[in-house]
Design a binder for these strands. Structure first.
Lengths: 358, 358
DNA sequence: CTGAAAGCGCTAACAC
DNA sequence: GTGTTAGCGCTTTCAG
């Protein structure tokens, strides 16, 4: 009974608890708890006394204990992208910056959780604090995203980065889910329109993976632009990839191999566009003289790059802030004015697009 | 007694607990706990039965409860930069990427905590899970950093990004503290040597804020280079700023105003260098013809920028990984092979430096 | 190999 | 206003 400490970092000082304060103050734990929580029922002078004592004794609220009792942790979880993308991809980090700035500012702690930890049928193994957040921000929505049923079942509020789309047997509708998004259809459409205006007719399209909602929306923008311009859709010009630079590189290579007649490539995100630039260079094609390349996203990494990539700018940081805002409002039980926050994209013409070679 | 739920996200389904499993399995809570934890004392077939049941009933370990009992949370906290810098500054996000990739990969959850939450004399107010991490990674060490005493007192392992330096009445020595760092002195020295080799003699230096250790180390690199080249130190060429782009801009402006004779500016991080480029442009100075500008860090944002900034590249992402590794090893109670991880910087000559105008 | 019981630190009815 | 009493869900001696 000497010093009954557990594992963890404790050296030998026992943590000061409310019981200690109660003893020293000659009050009950409840009163201490109320005083510290600012409960109006406790007499102002008592509260002052307790606060002073707490400070003096170096007392600190134990968040786990408090959380266990109240079922709130004042934390929000941010889902991280799944492979082949990673935590540290530029788009994500910029988004996380917006989320983090907002959340911390509101007194919430932000943590990162693997998507699987949220879905987790953990079989009781594996510990993670992930299930404990007051709410979640999730990225990379998939068609018929299984996380949604799960989250609804958990009863925790959540926000998606990107609009969602139900699958065959989803029990929810897109409108029910709270999300924030830059208008992918409009943005991609503008990029492709820009290529068309330059005179391109055979425009390759590198898409993300089939299962992501964003892939479909971006492809839709591509198709819409062609359609409006009266250009027939040519499926041979569409090449699937995975939103990574490497994937974009490989896709562009395949495309250029198969269809040397393309005069422009629209990659549905900047990283793939960057990969496509590589592929073009490798084939000895000059950009934009021999081939135009355009992307989508407007990631900060490439904002100062040379050559300037033509792209549509998503307000990435603002999306992060909006996601955090929508989530925290829900967590605090406030009624949401709007369940969706849709931002426009802005076409940014750079040096990688020009008229097709004659 | 109908459905005694608390606040939080719970809709109406009660969470499956170990007690539920115990009841259904005809075992005690203790056995369930042991079985799920993989305790060798429990009979293999019992364990299998429990695991199956847990899976079937959708049981999940409650991390707060578990954490409260064991005093370990399997989370690590990452301190965020203090104003005027922010969560979303490029250097930090890239570093966080390295930390996050490593930590998540090791089964740890990463969360962000305001530096104050760690120091926190909270007076018992303000909840945050911050005090609960199994360990911390802290950034922006200051001279005589007060967080260190606090962390030692808490008995939690921690790692600093950047070497530390004790103050007047610090009770610790730099060697006692675990840190990871890119060699600031060497890196900055190389940058300044590069300027000297180009022929510059009056080289301005824009520093970070006085209180940060990094500021001193970088200044030391600057001085060392001058010294070796036999150039007398001119204090009038040194201008203090705060590591932000805005701060760098203002400092460069003041410097150019006061000392129009400078032919080169070494800014002790890239963001300030970027600000200095602005200031130069504003004064109608052509870079590098009229003025050379060099930075330090090698942030990703500027890695593809135009003009290419001359700088020294820190292995930022790797520093993040190293920090996470050093921390997790400590958390797991393993003995550290080395308490410090020092990385070299690599000079990257860009387009912003050239010989001084005659 | 399994169970009983105490306890981690805090909160929330419910009394007085 | 303040105290009493149960928990929150899990882990861990201590028995057997």
């Amino acid at each position: 009974m000497a010093d009954g400490k557990k594992a963890g970092g404790d050296k030998n000082l026992r943590r000061v608890t409310m019981a200690d304060l109660a003893r020293r103050a000659g009050l009950s734990k409840s009163t201490i708890s109320r005083a510290l929580a600012g409960d109006p029922r406790v007499k102002p002078e008592t509260r002052a006394r307790v606060e002073a004592l707490a400070y003096e004794m170096g007392y600190e609220l134990h968040p786990l204990a408090s959380g266990l009792a109240t079922n709130r942790t004042f934390t929000i979880g941010l889902g991280i992208p799944s492979p082949p993308r990673s935590f540290s991809n530029p788009f994500y980090l910029e988004f996380a910056g917006g989320v983090g700035d907002w959340a911390l500012n509101q007194g919430y702690t932000l943590f990162f959780a693997q998507n699987e930890d949220i879905l987790a049928r953990t079989r009781g193994r594996r510990r993670t604090v992930a299930t404990l957040a007051d709410g979640y921000i999730l990225t990379e929505p998939e068609v018929g995203d299984a996380r949604i049923e799960r989250l609804i079942e958990m009863g925790k509020p959540f926000v998606f980065l990107g609009s969602v789309r139900p699958g065959e047997n989803s029990t929810w509708r897109s409108d029910d889910v709270v999300w924030t998004e830059a208008d992918n259809v409009q943005g991609c459409k503008e990029v492709v329109q820009h290529l068309i205006e330059l005179g391109h007719r055979r425009i390759g399209c590198i898409t993300g993976s089939e299962r992501h909602v964003a892939t479909h929306n971006r492809l839709q923008g591509y198709k819409a632009a062609l359609n409006e311009a009266g250009i027939a859709l040519d499926h041979g010009l569409i090449e699937a990839a995975d939103f990574t630079e490497e994937g974009g590189y490989l896709a562009a290579k395949r495309l250029l191999e198969r269809r040397p007649d393309v005069t422009a490539i629209f990659a549905s995100n900047d990283q793939m566009a960057f990969g496509a630039l590589h592929a073009a260079r490798e084939r000895g094609l000059h950009v934009p003289r021999d081939l135009s390349v355009a992307g989508f996203d407007g990631i900060a990494t490439l904002r100062y790059s040379t050559p300037q990539l033509t792209t549509a700018q998503q307000p990435i940081y603002e999306l992060g802030q909006a996601a955090a805002r929508l989530l925290i409002e829900q967590v605090q039980g406030r009624e949401l004015a709007e369940r969706h926050a849709l931002f426009p994209c802005r076409l940014r013409v750079g040096d990688t697009t020009g008229p097709p070679r004659r």
